[in-house]
Amino acid sequence: MDIGTFLIQLLNSVQYGLLLFLIASGLTLIFGIMGIINLAHGSFYMVGAYMAFSLSSLTGNLFVAIVLGIVLSVLLGLFLEWALFTKLYQRDHLQQVLLTYGLILVFEELRSILVGNDVHSVAIPAVLNYSVKLSETLSYPVYRLFISAVCVVLAVALYYVIQKTRLGMIIRAGSANREMVQSLGFNINLLYRLVFALGVGLAAFAGMIAAPVSSVYPGMGTQVLIICFVVVVIGGIGSVWGALVAALLIGLTDTFGKVMFPQWAGAGIYILMAAILLWRPEGLFRRI
């Protein structure tokens, strides 16, 4: 592998890792704060990607589609939390797994009814549809750099909100002791609803900005869900920082695995997970 391809693969893996982080951070927040295992989280990613496809063909502009999509997905998150997830907080994990498994089936079939089972592509917006030269012969698409930049901005914003603001402090306190926060006069139910909607919004947003590079296809949600589980397991449950490190690790393993050992690349990230489980069963980082 020469230095140019290496650089391109490196950029690809960082972009993929950052995208995974966006999805996994919502997942890990919902785990860490609400104690809910949400298998349907990947479906929100899929919903986002399909919204990017439908709304951008409707409005003709991906950015307008993304703004509309964020609003819709946050509303979806608020609705689902109100209708289903509030009933799950006191239940055991088995019931959470089952209900969210049911949700996956519902989302997949609704997708099949509404949009069909074809693979679609979403056009890269014209403003960003060009490449930068890395060397004489190699260039890199700007849209991928744009994805990475957006993810970094969101990661920093997330860190700031959770660690530095009053809201973040209440959320962290709520994950440690729900009753105490409630008796101090905070509306913990509203807080949970917001965190859940935030997680849904992040996953859907990731789906929307990824749509132009990854294309839009059935089953994309569960594929990404399982990889995000690996991210959360490696990073440590409830740790946003851990999710970032783990997501980048997975990005590197997956991208370089595909280049170097194509046949074993699918299994590669799971082998990484197994190794980390042996070393640190609780994940690399614990807690927020």
Binding site: L99, G102, L103, L105, V106, L110
Partner: peptide
């Protein structure tokens, strides 16, 4: 699968 998914959700609830 839509019916199956809805059945599962109702079952859990």
């Amino acid at each position: 699968q839509l019916l199956l998914g809805l059945t599962i959700i109702l079952l859990v609830l």
